[in-house]
């Protein structure tokens, strides 16, 4: 039995409300909030980046797992905002966790789905007997051009999953669907991403999530009603609700994992934080669907079955409690914290 042994999350404490960003750009906040399904987003502090977020969520996962860090055999960090273009985030994380020097490691990048791809790699390596435990992290401090619609949703946060055999949630199966679809991109050396506007919807988000989820359900012989919870990638509050409807999942199934209205889109952390929120309350025997989405484009779908071990793991503080513990900033402080002011 291979699956999630432990998990941890980190969400920076600062938040900015949609009203505050809309005030600066002369937009109608009510229309934006209704259209995006987002109330506010998380903002990293000046001394937080993908590496610090990755370390904090991984430390929480390791603390909860109560395993010797030296038994971690692989560290994979998925992000589209790695602090370095050349130099891995993974080695910083591994050093901060004290796992020694005997480990497989790489940084992954596939827009918002790099973290779930890290989970698939760890799953395969544990199943193959190459490692006892693998660490899969999805973390981002996502970028957005000032005044761009993305600015209302591009948040920061991360989640870590330790994959191994003595698991709290078994990976019942996984399925991926990918195609060359240029819906959202950032060219080398550019500070902000570009996107294809509405093109990010039907041919990108919806097609890939629907196909990956259907592929998984067909492979496992399952139906949406067989799941207690479902988590989809959350670029805004509307898309995951609509894709759930298309696939035949109910609002009740996705409610617990829908965190985007309060912290925004945490990119590589997005669906993984949603999964962590579900694990916070899940009971043995329950089945969870997770389907991520990364622009460019692809989706990874997973089916998890919660085991009895979940009762024995520390699950506090819960994701929803972390979301509530926040401090609001105005737009001026936001641009300072996010280094959007260029000097000379």
């Amino acid at each position: 039995m291979v699956g999630i042994v432990s998990y941890g999350t980190y969400i920076p404490k600062y938040r900015i409300k949609v009203e505050e960003i809309a005030r600066i750009w002369g937009e109608n906040a009510d229309v934006l909030k209704k259209g995006l399904g987002v109330e506010q987003k998380s903002v990293p502090s000046w001394d937080e980046d993908t590496a610090t977020i990755a370390v904090e969520c991984a430390r929480e996962a390791l603390r909860r797992a109560k395993i010797d860090p030296k038994r971690i055999g692989a560290v994979f960090v998925g992000s589209e905002s790695h602090p370095y273009a050349v130099k891995p985030t993974g080695t910083i994380v591994a050093e901060a966790l004290g796992i020694g020097n005997d480990y497989f490691c790489a940084d992954l990048e596939f827009a918002c789905k790099a973290g779930t791809t890290a989970m698939q790699i760890c799953y395969a390596m544990v199943k193959a007997g190459l490692i006892d435990y693998g660490i899969a992290i999805g973390a981002d401090t996502s970028q957005s051009r000032p005044g761009d619609p993305l600015e209302y949703t591009a948040g920061a946060g991360g989640a870590c999953f330790i994959v191994g055999r003595d698991c709290i949630a078994e990976i019942e199966g996984t399925f991926s669907f990918a195609s060359d679809t240029p819906d959202f991109w950032r060219r080398e050396g550019k500070p902000y991403p570009s996107h294809g506007g509405r093109f990010t919807g039907q041919p990108a988000y919806f097609r890939h999530i629907v196909e990956a989820t259907k592929g998984l359900l067909d492979k496992l012989g399952l139906r949406p009603s067989d799941f207690d919870y479902a988590v989809f990638h959350q670029p805004n509050g509307k898309f995951p609700i609509r894709v759930a409807q298309i696939l035949g999942f109910t609002k009740d199934q996705i409610k617990q994992g829908l965190v985007v209205p309060y912290i925004g889109n945490t990119y590589s952390g997005s669906s993984m934080i949603g999964l962590a929120s579900v694990l916070d309350v899940a009971k043995p025997g329950e089945r969870i669907l997770l389907t991520s989405f990364g622009s460019g484009a692809g989706s990874d779908a997973f089916s998890f079955v919660v085991t009895d071990r979940i009762e024995g793991i520390e699950r506090n503080p819960k994701v929803l409690e972390k979301i509530k513990e926040c401090e609001y900033v105005d737009y001026g402080l936001y641009v300072k914290l996010r280094r959007k002011i260029r000097f000379g």
Binding site: S45, D47, E48, T52, E56, R59, P83, Y84, A96
Partner: peptide
């Protein structure tokens, strides 16, 4: 203790991390 950035050697330099 938390893991945070301490600073960096300019835009091209190394990033320093540590405990705050």
């Amino acid at each position: 203790a938390v893991f945070r950035k301490f600073g960096e050697d300019g835009e091209d330099g190394i990033i320093y991390y540590g405990t705050k």
